[in-house]
Amino acid sequence: MPLSVQETEIKNPPVSRPPLDPHLKALENEAIHIFREVAAEFDNPVMLYSIGKDSSVLLHLARKAFFPGRVPFPLLHVDTTWKFREMIEFRNRVAEEYDLDLVVHTNKRGAAENITPFTHGSAFYTDVMKTEALKQALDAGGYDAAFGGARRDEEASRAKERIYSFRSPDHKWDPRNQRPELWNVYNGMIRKGESVRAFPLSNWTEVDIWRYIQAEDIPLVPLYYAAERPYVERDGMMVLAEDPRLELKDGEEVKRGMIRFRTLGCFPLTGAIRSTASNLEEIIAELEIATVSERQGRAIDRDQSGSMEKKKREGYF
């Protein structure tokens, strides 16, 4: 006779919460289904972990999907070395507390050549330290499937992304030649060297993410919550001024104010917004009346129209 679940040894036992509303429950069920399907069909999956709110939700769903088992794949963080300090602290704490296998990869060549967002421009920097670094890490790990937290509502080219997004051996995405995807029957058959990016959050919107974080009490990097912080205004963005590598240009000065971040990336390329929303209720309320998209603060998306599609074709998430 098998023992009941209470008698098995479970690390970090979950706590009981009120049931999710049907909308979030449907999204959660779909995501868990995708996690399990990929874990069962692929030999060597990995989860891309960017430390942001979507990654936090993704990780939470992965833990739910495989409970009472462990998350059966490693988390991969591509560290450009230009992330916010609080992100790295949070990452290390999460990995330890949830008993996760964390793989951190930095493009050593790019770092050695001192490629920075300040010196090489956001497009080139992103190409080397994010896109190139991601490919290196995926090749090094020999992963045949990689989970990502991308949502279709984020950006126009992502709206056409499949849940299983097929990639060639050199990680290229061919948007004109995607596999049809019907019902929730996913085709996980690939050849050696090819891979699939899997997106369990495809059908979630930004508000869904926040409401789920609230309902499930998911911990986040504190930068998402408004606080008085130092910043510099540059190129129409408010750049957090806490990292000593940020050098002030002529006419720039460090100001202080109530700010927060809607997305988190590399600090020189991620703009803050003015906000007093210091808890989830206030953030959701703020979102409801927001008139600009969350990626508006991202410098890399604004380089040119269709820039996300270009990056995706090249292998960016």
Partner: peptide
Amino acid sequence: MSASAISSHHSSSATILPFAESA
């Protein structure tokens, strides 16, 4: 160890009143 050691902002503060209806 539990997840609560990681900062969580689930509790509300005093300034949410104008937004409560919207939320």
